[in-house]
Simulated scan of single mutants.
Amino acid sequence: MDKKSKKTVGIAVVLVMIFMGIIIVLNKASVQRALKSINSEYSGGLDRTVTVYDYDGNEITQYTGKIDIEDTETGGKVKFDLDGKRTIIYGGIVIVQEN
């Protein structure tokens, strides 16, 4: 094998290794969640259903549509936008499911 062929094979091996590394990284669940969050942020939300229950487990209301949820870890509140309108829920049990 001459030098040019060896160089070509070496480049091909490096490119395959880089490609495989990218595939491995992108298939991690945490990366998939991050990409979904970015998609939600820039596309105005994901198709979701938000169901609100009282503390006895009775359903109070339900929202369905392209919903962008804002993460709020404090104060027991959930904030989201649906059809251009802001909804803030204080208290209760809130379950968000992707459709």
Score class of each variant (00 low, 15 high):
L46P: 00
G91F: 05
V13C: 11
M17R: 07
D56P: 07
I93L: 14
V94N: 14
Q32C: 14
E59I: 06
G84I: 02
G45R: 04
T64I: 15
G92T: 05
D83C: 09
G44N: 04
G65T: 00
D56M: 07
E70R: 02
R33E: 06
S40T: 01
G75I: 01
M17K: 05
I60Y: 07
Y42K: 00
A34C: 05
I88S: 09
E59P: 11
V50Y: 03
V31R: 08
Q97E: 14
I22E: 11
I23K: 09
I67N: 00
I95Y: 12
Y63C: 05
K79V: 03
T64F: 08
V94P: 01
K36A: 13
L46D: 06
I95C: 12
Y42H: 13
K77W: 12
I93W: 02
I95M: 14
V9T: 08
I89W: 06
G21Y: 07
I93C: 11
T64K: 13
F19I: 14
K85F: 12
G75N: 10
V78R: 04
I67Q: 00
I22R: 10
R48Y: 03
I69E: 01
G57H: 15
Y63H: 13
Q97A: 12
L26K: 08
N99L: 07
D47W: 01
G65Y: 04
G57T: 11
V31F: 02
K28Y: 06
G10E: 10
T51M: 00
T51G: 04
A12D: 09
S40Y: 00
I18A: 13
G91C: 12
F80Y: 03
V16E: 03
I24N: 07
T51K: 00
Q32P: 03
T51H: 06
Y55D: 00
G10M: 15
T49N: 09
M20K: 12
I67A: 03
D56Q: 11
T87S: 10
